[in-house]
């Protein structure tokens, strides 16, 4: 899922300083699962914005609502039901949601309530860790299912580097050396030779270095 975390409240209050009516809009997708922008977080942020405004001696009307997703036009169109009742939208979705609202609603001001941090999973309750960099050219079939792009601090394609000590990364003791894990896993399956293959220099255009990426499925377009 896409992992996000709420921005500091003061930053958000500053964004909407000129708005008397604010629509705080959550998303039931990824940000709901990682507890950054679902219904519960909308309730809390609405309260915090009201408190922030109260502290500045201002009154604000804050509506809290949550869409099924903010990355599909049909769901973003549901914002029509609050038309005329807000001066600004604070989106608690990932950056995709904020962009979609900006794309689809040229006359609405939209502000981000979260920082979109990574693609990851829940390592344990309350902890999320990055697992994928979305680089557009997966090498997981060669690396035992473990991603060196996202999980090696240097995104090495031929690790480990000289800084790996007893399976730990040199940037921090808490960070496992993913290349150590990759070697151990491939050894377990007797597939060390996968790493001996000479690979061409990586083409990073698929990772966004070639401009914004777009996926088109002819079988689905209408």
């Amino acid at each position: 899922m896409i992992i996000a975390e709420r921005k500091p409240v003061n930053e958000i209050v500053e964004m909407v300083k000129d708005a008397k009516r604010v629509l705080v809009l959550g998303c039931r997708g990824c940000v709901s699962v990682c507890s950054a922008g679902g219904e519960r977080e909308v309730e809390l942020l609405s309260s915090l914005i009201r408190l922030g405004k109260q502290k500045q001696g201002q009154k604000a009307e804050v509506i809290g609502a949550t869409l099924v997703r903010q990355c599909d036009k049909e769901y973003v169109d549901e914002i029509d039901q609050w038309q005329g009742r807000y001066d600004a939208i604070v989106s608690m979705a990932c950056g995709v949601g904020v962009n979609f609202i900006a794309n689809l609603r040229p006359n609405d001001q939209v502000f981000p309530a979260v920082n979109t941090t990574s693609f990851g999973g829940s390592a344990e309750q309350g902890v999320w860790s990055e697992q994928c960099a979305g680089c557009g050219d997966c090498v997981l079939h060669l690396t035992g299912g473990l991603c060196p792009v996202a999980r090696c601090a240097k995104s090495l394609m031929n690790g480990p580097c000289g800084g790996s000590v007893e399976g730990r990364c040199e940037i921090h003791q808490e960070v496992p050396c993913i290349w150590q894990f990759i070697h151990e896993r491939l050894n377990r399956f007797e597939r060390r030779q996968d790493l001996e293959r000479v690979a061409p220099i990586r083409d990073w255009r698929s990772a966004g270095h070639g401009g914004p990426r777009k996926t088109v499925r002819d079988d689905l377009t209408v």
Binding site: P8, V9, N10, V13, L44, L48, L51, G52, K55
Partner: peptide
Amino acid sequence: KALEELEV
């Protein structure tokens, strides 16, 4: 934490 963020 939220109060601290709001400087309260």
